[in-house]
Nucleic acid binder design. Structure first.
Length: 537
DNA sequence: GCCGTTTTCGGCCCGACTGTTTTCAGTCG
């Protein structure tokens, strides 16, 4: 089993134990193990061979032994024992934000509902309010939560779809004689979420008849890919030694044959020069003909990252470890922006701890400067209910960079939330608005917000908006970024890394930036250090 | 189930909100 699969399996164990009412700390232990695995740079198999499983954070005797079982046999005793004890649909019910394990278990037992759909029907038929501990108000709320969840899951978030397609691609690459495998369709266009009912093609290319036969056999032997959580299909490409075939498939899948024909007719073969992320632009053909396509930003343009956490708050790596990781990635600068005090659950920094961290950063600076990395001091400061900041001006004044974000009280109405965020942007200390809409892909809609007003405020005060590149956020979306660019607002693309590994999550933000037509000059962290410092003031 | 010990048990990031069981459990960030 892969790291990803084992992590998901530990999460599944946690989900089931939680519904069974198992000790919350035991449940957390499994979740911590899954998080640790997700943060690993190395394969668990390799770590196991070196006998180092026990050294991983959150890996005790039991978790290490279960991990070894998964690696050796693909399963372990506890999984075999509990996997069928709670219906998959009940686990799904518990995962709907606002439902939770207790509610799911209670309603499963009282009403025998075993799917989100059945729960929804029970709410509509007013059967939930009759259950002990529930009432009419709770039933109405529950229905609202389910409806929100359904809206969020009409499309499958990229963060879930891409790993599935990549897994299929990995398996295809192992097929004898296959020369090239490409992920096509909506994923290839960089869309933040995809229609799971549409066919998502993974293209496998092979020139020899025997290899083509092997691909056909793979398809026959692996029907599970074709109709699981999303429809993945394998298409055999003709072998032309170019990427034309892959692009045609990309278009066919996401844009339909009409778009292919239009591209071919209007742009002849020059349409190869059109970046795939721009295929969804209605005026892409006109722009291409006029030679006015943007020179899209690439990963190579990045010179640093500006929103990172460490063990000072809720990160898993120290300032030094994060700086080392940034150097390895070839960055020229890295900003350390831990949480502010009000975010207690994330171990937010009091003013004294901010100053203490600043001392640590200053002590590390000479060594890293000599090696080519500037460490910027900063803070991800919470925007309070009234738009003021969760740290006093005297401290903020000392920092190189301030990211301001909303983490709590996000259920305010649109006018209040817009005023709150615009007030924060007016603060002279704030440089970047972090994850501007607060959405979590597939789980939470963003706060009620007048994004145009926020963009105008950012333009007025000369502040940047963030594309938060963590896969679960992908916040802002491409349409909003396009509007921001049109208004002359600068963008920061930030990994919001809580570990050295998540410093490598840039691609999730990059596809948004490219779909929005951003060029390197639009993005703060593509500037050289001197230019950035000049802008930060 | 993990962890760190005053080394084998007792604590495990915590504060706010919500509905209702009206005194606290469930859920969230």
């Amino acid at each position: 089993m892969t790291n990803y699969e084992i992590a998901r399996r530990f999460e599944a164990i946690a989900d089931i134990l939680e519904i069974q009412g198992e000790n919350v700390f035991k449940v957390r232990a499994y979740r911590v193990a899954a998080e640790t695995i997700d943060d690993l740079e190395d394969d668990l198999a390799t770590i196991h061979e070196r006998g180092k499983l026990r050294e991983l954070p959150g890996f005790g005797e039991a978790i290490a032994s279960k991990t070894a079982d998964f690696l050796a046999t693909g399963t372990t005793a506890i999984w075999e024992r509990i996997k069928d004890s709670v219906p998959v649909g009940v686990v799904k019910m518990a995962s709907v934000p606002g439902v939770g394990p207790r509610t799911a278990k209670a309603l499963w037992e009282a009403l025998e509902v075993t799917s989100v759909e059945a729960l929804e029907a029970a709410c509509r038929e007013q059967r939930v309010r009759a259950v002990a501990g529930f009432g009419a108000a709770k039933e109405t709320k529950l229905l609202e939560k389910i409806e929100a969840w359904k809206r969020l899951n009409e499309k499958m978030p990229r963060r879930w779809a891409l790993p599935l397609a990549e897994k299929l691609a990995t398996e295809l690459r192992k097929v004898e004689g296959v020369e090239r495998v490409e992920i096509a369709g909506e994923l290839r266009l960089g869309r933040e979420s995809i229609n799971p009912r549409r066919n998502h093609i993974v293209l496998a290319e092979a020139s020899t008849p025997s290899a083509q036969a092997a691909i056909a056999e793979f398809k026959l032997k692996n029907p599970q890919w074709m109709e699981t959580e999303m429809r993945l299909q394998v298409a055999e490409g003709e072998h032309h030694g170019s990427n034309i075939t892959a692009k045609v498939f990309t278009l066919r899948c996401a844009g339909g044959n009409e778009l292919v024909e239009q591209f071919m007719k209007e742009l002849n073969w020059e349409w190869e020069a059109v970046p795939e992320e721009l295929y969804d632009w209605p005026d892409v053909i006109e722009l291409a003909k006029a030679g006015k396509l943007p020179k899209l930003i690439t990963e190579a343009d990045f010179k640093g990252q500006l929103h990172e956490h460490t063990t000072w708050s809720d990160g898993t790596a120290s300032v030094r470890e994060m700086a080392e990781a940034a150097l390895e990635r070839g960055y020229a600068y890295l900003a350390i922006t831990d949480h502010s005090p009000l975010l207690a659950i994330a171990n937010g920094l009091s003013r004294e701890r901010v100053l203490a961290q600043l001392e640590e950063i200053e002590s590390l600076r000479p060594e890293f400067a000599a090696r080519g990395l500037a460490i910027l001091s900063g803070l991800e400061v919470d925007i309070l209910k009234d738009g003021t900041l969760d740290m006093d001006d005297e401290v903020l004044e000392k920092l190189d960079i301030v990211v301001a974000s909303v983490h709590m009280r996000y259920k305010e109405d649109e006018a209040a939330m817009t005023a709150r965020i615009c007030a924060a942007l007016a603060s002279p200390h704030v440089d970047i608005l972090g994850h501007p809409t607060g959405r979590i892909m597939g789980q939470r809609e963003g706060y009620a917000l007048d994004i145009d007003a926020v963009i105008q405020a950012a333009a007025k005060y000369g502040k940047a908006l963030e594309i938060n590149a963590s896969p679960e956020r992908m916040d802002l979306c491409d349409e909003h970024v396009k509007k921001a660019k049109a208004a002359g607002v600068k963008i920061a693309i930030n990994c919001d890394a809580h570990s050295t590994k998540s410093l490598g999550n840039l691609s999730w933000g990059l596809c948004i930036a490219r779909r929005a037509g951003l060029e390197a000059s639009d993005v703060l962290n593509c500037w050289d250090l001197a230019t950035l410092r000049g802008w930060l003031g």
